[in-house]
């Protein structure tokens, strides 16, 4: 049984790229355009992994990340952070710090900075899902 991977990204180019990579590696891709839709899909479809963009309109990427990391039922769900900014900038970003309100920002399982080769992305997914 193939595993389900949810791509949350507001950029259609990025979505179709990731979807293609997932299909080529025999995973079932699911897509969401922002954090709100992302959470709906997670609750409904129960994916095995989330590939999440951080910088999305309305700060919804950061909010979704915060939600997933602070609710027990989602804590085990692996997340690949897939974004245009460096990890250091992400951990120090004011919006991120505001969202976590002073609590330590948990590091994502895997952090990939765009652009990423299809092989690297596929390897990262495989590492988490086998």
């Amino acid at each position: 049984m193939s595993k389900k991977v949810l791509v949350v990204d507001d950029d259609p180019d990025v979505r179709s790229f990731v979807v293609t990579v997932l299909e080529e590696n025999q995973y079932i891709p699911l897509i969401a355009q922002d954090g709100v839709e992302g959470l709906e899909k997670i609750e409904k479809e129960k994916p095995d992994l989330v590939i999440l963009d951080v910088l999305m309109p309305r700060g919804s990427g950061i909010r979704l990340y915060h939600h997933l990391k602070t609710h027990d039922q989602f804590k085990a769900l692996p997340i690949i952070m897939f974004t245009g900014i460096a990890l250091r900038s992400f951990l120090k970003s004011q919006k991120v710090l505001d969202e976590f309100q002073g609590a330590e920002v948990p590091k994502p399982d895997i952090y990939l900075e765009k652009p990423v080769d299809p092989e690297v992305l596929a390897a990262a997914v495989r590492k988490k899902l086998g």
Binding site: V14, K114, P115
Partner: peptide
Amino acid sequence: IGLKGGSYI
């Protein structure tokens, strides 16, 4: 990013 993704597809 767009160009790379596009050419992969």
